[in-house]
Design a protein around this nucleic acid. Structure first.
Lengths: 345, 345
DNA sequence: TTGAAAGCGCTAACAG
DNA sequence: CTGTTAGCGCTTTCAA
């Protein structure tokens, strides 16, 4: 099956060079050390032999595995985590690192043992990524080599992390609504068990305040479709003149619930009321009728940035960056929001 | 940050033993080679020093990386792949292997370059896993070390693979329905672009035939919610006495479409008609009202089995197993199916 | 500019 | 039963 792979020695022999010359050429350190024509001969010998340097041997020598580990609380079942992992893998791979993923499998599992396992494997750097935005206690193992938090923040705010700028997201979502002429905005869903809800609400209220509008009425609840449905129920059972112009939902699932209620009760979205989601959840925000206008959680960018920063750190790049990096949530305009029309009472 | 890690040498010195003794103890080859009390001293020295063998060094020596690679066409965005990856990772980890995942990111991406990349990293074995059941051409790289297909099969049927037994699944689903007293069963959704649909239909027809019932009427279509909705529309627009007793949907999303149509038109499920799904898609089959009775795709088991077989092979275990292994799809009974009631016309 | 030599930390064969 | 030895394939100093 796997015939013996060629080594640098084989390449050297074929090219009439020394092993060290081969090494230098393969690592791009040859200029100024190996004659140009010799470089060329080495390169073609390597190509003919289909030689690829053995990363295990080089890892042993330079005390580097060229792997970065990602431990996550729930990658497997999540509609989001994939984007974060993909972003991190791609960024790492572009810099010559392989990502290895350890999935704790449950939202509240203790990541320490997975961090230890990855450290045993000698990963060069470590990301701790959570499925939902959370505050965490940084496990000790994370401090023993370059590490970073993705989509979660240190309870003590002393460990580097990459998280979405939820306050700004809430504000920009509200500004979008206000820009469409809406004045009365209601919030539905999203209790404060999760860090995101208070931040989004804060942004919303700030935007209303700067526009000189009254604060939003809050219909807090959970994060699911049924919570959106119930929230809409409470809102639309009132007389029409007490309806809000727009509903800002804690997340896209809640928005689906609002849409379902509206559909079942002859309320037009966005004709009678605009509906705004949050998260840009795949196969959901883009799959409803109307499609949900929403704020996109920058999962891919978080993965990418986290990988970049860890690799920068372990390669000794200047690390003058702030501990916590906030990433913007871009607005994704779809059909569930529209300019305000004066409603027939 | 990362202070120097202890080596086997350090442990040997502390225990007053030789490096090889330490190695044997750490690898469980000590009995009969190292005196019991010495083993004990080595073990406690290792514990005190928090020594863990360097897998890079041992990998170099034994020409093994203890990693198995998984290349997949769409892990990131899939609601299923996670379970397969989790199954494989867990099984591999229990045998001392780390899984590394390369996600091609698109359903039709060519996996060859990802296989090559993982081979460059010297993975000991390789799984090629697809998101949907498919027939594939085995990339050359897969043959150069132990490898296996998961959720896809070789076009030539000569390379080992683990796939769900869709025919049996279709049959057992139909038997469940027939057992409830249903006699007229309609199939909705699932064209034959994907290998699963014809197999499920074949199982369905076989079950009907052995029960002496007429064949199912087929409303082929795609795999989405809207296809289920349209299929239901065609079925229920006919006079009541032409309605089937049960609808076997190509997948859970299609079943959701049927449920939506029924809900919007006052048709009771399972009172008027039973609805059967397939896939057991998380957050879907279990989240509707009523919950969807469905056949569970054995993703976790496929991952587990695939990892097991690859590791068996590379560890030289007897490989007398058939090339293609079929795994059962267990029935998950929920509330969308019920015994037949004589319907009021 | 080149090549020889010294390991990285570990395992496995072999001699004591 | 124990300890010594010879590398695995690579990188990186250092002397020529």
């Amino acid at each position: 099956m796997s015939q013996r792979r060629p080594t640098a020695q084989d390449v050297a022999k074929r090219a009439g060079a020394s092993r060290s010359a081969v090494s230098m050429v393969m690592n791009g350190n040859a200029d100024g050390n190996v004659a140009p024509d010799m470089q060329e001969r080495i390169r073609s010998a390597a190509a003919e032999l289909e030689y690829t340097p053995n990363p295990i041997a080089s890892g042993l020598r330079r005390q580097r595995s060229q792997m970065i580990g990602i431990v996550t609380d729930e990658a497997a079942s999540s509609p989001f985590a994939g984007r974060m992992l993909a972003g991190a893998s791609k960024a790492a791979s572009e810099r010559g690192y392989l990502t290895v993923i350890a999935d704790a499998g449950a939202p509240n599992a203790d990541p320490s043992s997975f961090i230890d396992e990855l450290r045993r494997r000698r990963v060069d750097g470590l990301l701790l990524a959570t499925q939902r935005l959370r505050t965490v206690d940084v496990p000790d193992g994370l401090r023993l080599q370059p590490g970073i938090l993705a989509n979660c923040r240190d309870r003590l705010d002393s460990f580097p992390s990459i998280i979405p700028d939820e306050i700004r997201g809430g504000r920009e979502a509200a500004e979008h609504l206000i820009g469409l002429g809406h004045r009365r905005i209601a919030w539905v869903g999203g209790d404060d068990d999760v860090d995101a809800a208070p931040a989004r609400i804060a942004g919303l209220q700030a935007a209303l305040a700067s526009a000189g509008l009254p604060g939003a009425e809050l219909h807090a609840g959970e994060w699911d479709i049924s919570d959106g449905y119930r929230g809409a129920e409470r809102i639309f059972e009132r007389p029409t003149d007490q309806w809000p112009d727009a509903i800002f939902c804690a997340c896209d699932r809640v928005a689906v619930g609002v849409l379902l209620y509206a559909g079942a009760h002859g309320i037009s979205v966005p004709g009678d009321v605009s509906v705004m989601g949050y998260d840009d959840q795949r196969h959901l925000a883009d799959a409803t009728v109307p499609g949900i206008t929403t704020m996109s959680l920058p999962h891919e960018a978080m993965g990418r940035e986290a990988a970049r920063r860890v690799i920068d750190e372990l390669e000794g790049a200047p690390t003058d960056e702030a501990a916590t990096t906030l990433l913007q949530c871009p607005l994704v305009a779809r059909a569930s929001t529209a300019p305000r029309t004066s409603r027939a009472a």
